[in-house]
Design a protein around this nucleic acid. Structure first.
Lengths: 233, 233
DNA sequence: CTCCAAAGGTATGTCAGCGAGCCATTGGCC
DNA sequence: GGCCAATGGCTCGCTGACATACCTTTGGAG
């Protein structure tokens, strides 16, 4: 049973401002939106965009520095840069099965919906190029960087729905699922299969085949979903 | 263009604790989860569930009292009750078109996905009864209470996916869309048509016809979506 | 009738988070 | 070589939010 009120009277805030800020920055880095070597926006601008004070943002950045994830340089053309070598993430807490199913359900709904929606729009040349570029990056990715490139492709698909809320929701759920995926091994055969599926999804989106894109995405997601259910139950 | 970074470096918090708490309470009331005449959870419990201090929760409740939405009674078996007669909501701010499309896109993805997912599960007798009850309530609703009963039915569908996150996301997006819908008139013919579509969606969910449930929900949502696009563009 | 449990109402001390301003460093431009 | 704009680094006072404790009201149980 999952009473409706539990879903509505859930916590208003996921954590304090500091924690949520760290979470956001990690999201941008782990999902490959700001790749290794690149610079985050300047503190003053980033603080404004995140709706957080510069002091709080700096505390968050500081904790990423301590974790070896970013480095800051002063002076003009300075800034905060994502390290080229990202440290392996620590194993998180134990995950309950209901929590897992919840995340997987939401992911399926959001990502299959996004694929269908993206295919149903008339994409601009920039968007089409973006999709193809992310697909190529993903195919040629090493094992160590695969999850990041994979997420980056999925986010590109989300982005091409034109809905910022949808994109944000997908980013959030991907963070939840990736945290779980990091506990199970990533094997080259899975990776090759995944690339084939990506190709199919992107092709159908570019062809405007909404129903086909949805089905291809559903099949793709089912792969990791059943892997996860197997490993964590 | 909707750069990916805009979707990720969005504000960490939608407002201060007080505002977000008011929003949550309004959500429960406007979406019909706590119907007129019923009692909210006790302050101490509600504050805990919302992850907010009792002082802040009380400020929020106070502002709902001032707006004539709830009333508080002291003593044992007292509490905070939703008023039987809810005041008409004030016309909100002007809405931009991109914001509208964003909300509608997200709604379509979430709700068609939820319908499909609900149909694909084996629902328990309680869930089946719940769906039928909400459907009946909706059919027999007066104009004034239609949006609330309608939302309550859609939330029951969301709930029967078993995913709390999905249910919460649907509640959020419905609040956004309802705010827009309140600016356009609700006519009896629309209402009758809507009821037919509801019936179709629920029937297909109960029959386990996932693809059909999705299509029926998509059609249902298209109705209000095109109405909205017409009125607000 | 009395008591008391459960609910709302109130007060207070503490701390996180904010805004604003200033300092320190750096590298390109003139 | 000197200037200066853009960046990170730092400080201080103010306010919102919180935890905690206590008070007041109410209606049923005994």
């Amino acid at each position: 049973m999952m009473p409706l009120r539990d879903a509505l009277f859930r916590p208003v805030r996921a954590g304090n401002a500091f924690e949520e800020t760290v979470e956001r920055l990690m999201q941008a880095i782990r999902l490959g939106v700001v790749p290794p070597g690149e610079r985050l926006p300047a503190e003053r601008e980033l603080a404004t965009r995140l709706g957080v004070s510069r002091v709080t943002l700096r505390e968050a950045i500081r904790s990423l520095q301590d974790a070896g994830i970013v480095e800051s340089r002063r002076g003009r053309y300075g800034g905060t840069f994502v390290n080229a070598e990202l440290p392996a993430s620590l194993p998180g807490r134990r995950v309950e099965v209901p929590e897992l199913l919840d995340a997987l359900t939401l992911r399926t709904v959001l990502e299959t919906g996004a694929a269908e929606c993206a295919a149903g729009r008339s994409l601009g040349p920039g968007e089409r190029r973006n999709l193809r570029a992310r697909l190529a990056e993903c195919s040629s990715a090493e094992l160590a960087e695969y999850r990041r490139k994979d997420s980056r492709l999925h986010l590109a698909i989300a982005e091409s729905t034109g809905s910022a809320s949808l994109t944000g929701a997908i980013a959030d759920v991907r963070m939840r699922v990736n945290e779980l995926l990091e506990r199970i091994p990533l094997l080259p055969p899975n990776l090759a299969h995944s690339n084939d599926q990506h190709e199919l999804v992107v092709t159908r989106i570019l062809d405007g085949d909404a129903e086909g894109a949805r089905r291809a995405m559903a099949e793709h997601l089912d792969g990791t979903a059943s892997l996860l259910r197997g490993f964590l139950s």
